[in-house]
């Protein structure tokens, strides 16, 4: 059992090292942007995964409210926490990328704004849970937020898009990515995905252990009363 866990922990580290090698030494330097374009392999996977994770949390939240399965709730909590780390990363790296390329740290463009709102919803999700004394209630509230957030994100995207239709710079005119870059991106996406799963697995274990310990305490209290 321990061996399997060690392998699972080693895999993301190995992948990450290979990923670094690919990003800095194999991927071609962008003709228009130069080396700074290499942030792309960090920014795009984290941003993409944080949205995937968030919609997964929304789905799990629906399932939790219907079936009240505690394992589902623990999984969504672990996912949301790691998702918060990822979305924070996506925002920071995006901003660092934007400064030299666009000349500003931030623009209120639909994708950026939606990501920022996603960040706020993630923060609220984690906060509501930890600020509610009763854990069952906290889980329910978090699930409610997960669902409302999942519905809200597309609406925010759409309304910000409508707002910025008139003026604004043309950003992200997607010219086709050359294959050599695409493969590095795919590899990076897989790497960050595996890292995400490893982090979620570890966080899930601590949540599970918390549950076991509190159940145990409860049983002991009941015994001592009898």
């Amino acid at each position: 059992m321990k061996k399997i866990r060690n392998i699972l922990l080693a895999m993301p580290i190995v992948l990450m090292l290979v990923n670094i090698y690919l990003i800095f030494l194999v991927a071609p330097t962008d003709i228009n942007l130069g080396h700074i374009q290499r942030i792309f392999y960090l920014h795009v996977p984290t941003a993409l995964l944080s949205f995937v994770v968030f919609f997964t949390v929304a789905g799990l939240s629906v399932s939790y409210l219907i079936n009240k399965n505690k394992a589902v709730d623990r999984l969504s909590q672990a996912l949301a926490e790691v998702g918060l780390v990822y979305v924070t990363l996506a925002l920071i790296t995006g901003s660092i990328w934007a400064k030299p390329v666009w000349g500003v740290w931030w623009t209120w463009e639909p994708r950026l704004t939606t990501t920022l709102i996603l960040w706020f919803i993630y923060v609220a999700y984690v906060m509501v849970r930890s600020y509610t004394a009763d854990t069952n209630r906290g889980s329910k509230f978090a699930a409610v937020l997960g669902i409302v957030g999942g519905i809200n994100v597309p609406i925010v995207y759409y309304s910000v898009m409508l707002r910025s239709i008139h003026p604004g710079p043309v950003i992200g005119d997607e010219t086709k990515l050359p294959d050599s870059m695409l493969w590095v991106l795919v590899f990076s996406l897989i790497t960050f995905g595996v890292v995400l799963l490893a982090l979620v697995k570890e966080r899930h274990f601590t949540l599970y252990a918390d549950q076991v310990i509190s159940d145990h305490k409860l049983r002991r209290q009941q015994k001592s009363i009898i």
């Binding site: 984290t46 990328w97 890292v195």
Partner: peptide, 29 residues
């Protein structure tokens, strides 16, 4: 390529922040 601004400072800052955050969270867990 030699004529391009390298922006290596921004590039390293981004990756530095990323590793710090991921490691920080790992240590927390």
């Amino acid at each position: 390529q030699a004529n391009l601004p390298s922006n290596l400072g921004y590039l390293s800052a981004a990756y530095f922040v990323a590793w710090i955050m991921l490691f920080g969270y790992l240590i927390f867990i």
